[in-house]
Amino acid sequence: MFKIVHAQFIAPGIKRFVIEAPRIARKQRPGQFVIVRVNEKGERIPLTIEKSDPEKGTVNIVVQSIGKTTNLLNSLETGGTILDIVGPLGKPSEIENFGTVVVMGGGVGTAMAYPTASALKQAGNRVITIIGGRNKDLVILEPEMREVSDTVFVTTDDGSSGDKGLVTDRLRQLLENGTRIDLVLAVGPIPMMRAVADMTRKEHIRTLVSLNPIMIDGTGMCGGCRVLVEGKSEFACVDGPEFDAHRVDFAILVQRNTMYRDAEKRSLEEYKREVEQKQTPNPAEEVACALEGKR
């Protein structure tokens, strides 16, 4: 049982949880993740660690409501509990002074990119950050990123903040301007990461992507998160989550992520129905409450 010390929406449908997990807080390094199971009947899903505080023994995770489990998680409040959190999992990001690094975060992916950006800055890199989202509200952690970056570019699909366009448009401009880039780290939706990979491949710029396939145990035991890397199976949970973007087979990744689409849809619909039923006031109950003077 893990206690939620603080829970707060930081964007529509995106919530930050500060969770008491001293063991994880002590060991977490940038690039790693946790696996969470909300309750006894819950599934195990991998989630991003934004940062941790070893002294307070807390870790921050950032969750976007997508399916049933993430919706259920985001219904939890300060003071609540999460049944299981295990981690930190995966290999930490490689941190050294590469020179100039472009860190790209798409949507909630920015939360995963943030601790690595911070560590890269501390290691002496020049950090150029490009973060984006569909609109202004969905660009997260902009102030945090500004603190750890030399330059921050924001892009939105609708132009409500920063440049109108995609994070890759900004990357293209940097490349066209002849900016020297030694490393690119991209974390976000698969189409974004794939587009970054295609763009930097031609320029021979080393590019890393952090992958988030379907996982169960997170320790290499099930093989469900296998990713095709230059024709070879690698496990995102133990060999990753960061991989050389130019070697990843993104088509297979997309295909495998659709494996449970029908089941996921059904789970979410049933969950929403349950929530609605709970919210619809029961007239008899209301009368009883009124009589007892509870309202």
Binding site: K41, G42, E43, R44, K68, T69, I216, D217, M221, C222, G223, G224, Y260, A263, E264, R266, S267, E270
Partner: peptide, 20 residues
Amino acid sequence: EFLTRINLMHSYEFPKYDEP
């Protein structure tokens, strides 16, 4: 993976249990 889904995660009881 198959047996973990069945045994540990009770997928055979989906959607009562969440893991599909």
